[in-house]
Design a binder for these strands. Structure first.
Lengths: 172, 172
DNA sequence: TTTGCTATTGCAAGTAGATTGCAGTAATTT
DNA sequence: AAATTACTGCAATCTACTTGCAATAGCAAA
């Protein structure tokens, strides 16, 4: 039984260039704006799912600082956080972006169909580690057959007692 | 492969009385208070995972109204919402209660080891339906072996396009 | 039963992620 | 180049949740 689940780990790697992604989004939305491109670029380059605030910081860091020579124009201002929220919401409705988990600092988003990892958090000490690539593909397929939903995605996070904290538990 | 997942749906039913549950908690916590008993009783009687606010309302509804004959004593006052939050946090640390999903109105909690259902929400119209009992047991076992964690629980929620909304999607 | 210890409670104030209204801006079409 | 309107940024707001602290109430020992 476990061997089947392990097999599910070898997900196909997505080899879509950023340019191809932007072209795909351009066809799906009314206007491909600067803010939308910045959000997609941040998610494209991310190794882990990002919160809206992390996307904001990523964009802000990529912008050159203002000096007397380079005044504060529209070009070098960061994208407003509220714009990032609104773009994530729109891209999620179009199934181009998905919520992966609700972390302690808010929802984390990733590009759809990206192979991704999930994490497990110790409810006692707060330690958080990876559990490897996603194992949910079979469950999603089962749900699709049962409910008629398509474009199924999952929000998954695990909790438990890490090896160091196991003796404190009441359930053993 | 799917037949294995379907088999995982027949989880053992938990037949613990409320009294047995309270006794178990009494041994695990320093003081079994009125608030803690009320929270546990609400979760015990719940058919679905509850938010802190839903637990608050459930407790408040179960209390007799104040009249001139029955003045406002400590006995018929509801449990403060902050007390419910603190009890849920404590019970979660002891693995007696678990977060099931982060709904639009906040985290939903359930008693640990209760057979429970998960839901799928349409990202376009917001419709939410059940996907049947939980299929995560095998994945949790795999993670336990890989990470050394015990008392593993999961936070799971699904999203997708419901049959009525599927033509609007950009991903097809 | 009474007493003492301290975990727990309730109130109030605060934090932070996320949302909303609106006037101005900019991406696209013609 | 002009027109249309989707989108942006600012400010204000909402709400789930947390924290500080004095008062209260479980529980155990006397």
């Amino acid at each position: 039984m476990l061997s089947i689940l392990v097999a599910a780990m070898s997900l196909p790697s997505v080899s879509l260039s950023l340019e191809q992604l932007l072209e795909r989004v351009r066809r799906a939305v009314p206007r491909l704006t600067k803010g939308k491109k910045a959000v997609l670029s941040a998610l494209y380059g991310a190794k882990h799912p990002l919160t809206a605030h992390e996307i904001y910081m990523h964009i802000a860091k990529g912008i050159h600082h203002t000096t007397s020579e380079t005044p504060n124009t529209k070009q070098n201002l960061p994208i407003d956080l509220v714009t990032i929220y609104r773009n994530l919401e729109q891209l999620e409705r179009l199934h181009l972006v998905v919520k992966i988990e609700h972390s302690q600092t808010g929802w984390r988003y990733a590009l759809t169909d990206r192979p991704h990892i999930h994490t497990i958090t110790c409810t006692e000490c707060g330690q958080e580690i990876s559990v490897g690539e996603c194992l949910m593909a079979d469950i999603e397929q089962f749900i699709a057959q049962k409910t008629g939903f398509t474009n199924i995605h999952h929000v998954v996070h695990f909790t438990g007692s890490c090896p160091q904290c196991q003796h404190h538990s009441a359930s053993t």
